[in-house]
Nucleic acid binder design. Structure first.
Length: 281
DNA sequence: AATGTAGACAACCGCCTCTAA
DNA sequence: CTTAGAGGCGGTTGTCTACAT
């Protein structure tokens, strides 16, 4: 009838991945590429489900992943995109190079959501909370007084508040927004062109108002804003010291030429470096 | 120093859509 | 055309770590 099962559930390992498993998976993907996940566990010598391998690779091992907290610019973009797209994390992640849907989802739930609530903004609808809860004239007055304050903070008020303040689903009701959302949902290539161009100013703006002190070369990688604005230099980053003894996990077998020609070097090294540090810890 | 609590994030679960057989 | 698995996605949980008491 249908296809063969991706994995016989028998003997399939669960739980955290070991360094050894990671090694096998990286080795396999970088040698053979990612084509057929159901075959990966068997061919790579892993007792894992293909699904689990895919997840591990896309969320953690991919060399082009950025590590560390989202920058304020990225955070702003996430908020902006969430206002348009809702919880479609994969769509949102597609607009943030080097970030995964899982990472963004986690960041949203642990950071941004709270931040928005603290500011009196509903993280689901992106509307001011008071608007829904209170209908008395006095509350509305309070709301009006609050909003400019939020604006002065420089975040969260840019696009969703300027264009309109409706929920993601409501966004689709107005003509222009509806068209945009349709395009976003139906055509990724258009999305790339439109939204990146669309948000370029937002990103730059966010960078301008981001005046928080930054520490060079930290693991949090807060300076590593995409678009080449600030990228930690290879030489300066002592996170790469471990690379000197990378041979012991088969660097030559990883097809790094392929890998590093295609992606940002520093990000890749940070990714695998932090992974290794985690494994050694 | 020991214990409790909160935060962060990796990983799993279950559902949906697409597509091979 | 039907069926069932693959792949992808979003929601949720589990575990580890840092911090507070």
């Amino acid at each position: 009838m249908g296809r063969q099962p991706c994995c016989d559930k028998l003997g399939v390992k669960k739980g955290p991945w070991t360094a050894e498993e990671d090694k096998k998976l990286i080795n396999f993907i970088l040698t053979n590429g990612q084509c057929c996940w159901r075959a990966v566990p068997k061919l790579a010598g892993l007792r894992r489900c293909g699904k689990s391998c895919r997840l591990r690779w896309t969320n953690y091992l991919r060399p082009d992943l950025k590590r560390g907290l989202l920058t304020q610019a990225e955070e702003q973009l996430v908020i902006d995109l969430h206002a348009r797209l809702g919880n479609r994390w994969s769509k949102i992640a597609a607009r943030l190079p080097g970030r995964t849907d899982n990472e963004i989802k986690n960041h949203w739930n642990t950071h941004i959501k709270k931040k928005l609530l603290k500011m009196g903004i509903d993280p689901v609808t992106h509307e001011p909370l008071n608007k829904k809860e209170s209908s008395s004239p006095e509350d509305q007055k309070n709301l009006q007084q609050q909003e400019p304050k939020e604006g002065n903070n420089g975040d969260l008020n840019s696009e969703e508040n300027n264009s309109n303040s409706s929920s993601p689903t409501e966004n689709s009701s107005s003509g222009e927004e509806s068209l945009l959302l349709d395009r976003i949902c139906s055509d990724d290539s258009l999305m790339m062109d439109d939204l990146w161009m669309d948000h370029e100013n937002t990103l730059v703006d966010a960078l301008l108002w981001d005046t928080t002190p930054k520490v060079e070369g930290t693991n949090t990688n807060t300076n590593n804003v995409d678009m080449g604005l600030t990228v930690p230099s290879w030489e300066d980053n002592n996170n790469y010291a471990w690379l000197l003894d990378f041979e012991d996990i088969g660097v030559h077998d990883f097809g790094f030429n392929y890998c590093f020609n295609e992606i940002d070097h520093s990000n890749a090294m940070q990714t695998i470096g932090s992974e290794r540090k985690g494994s050694l810890a």
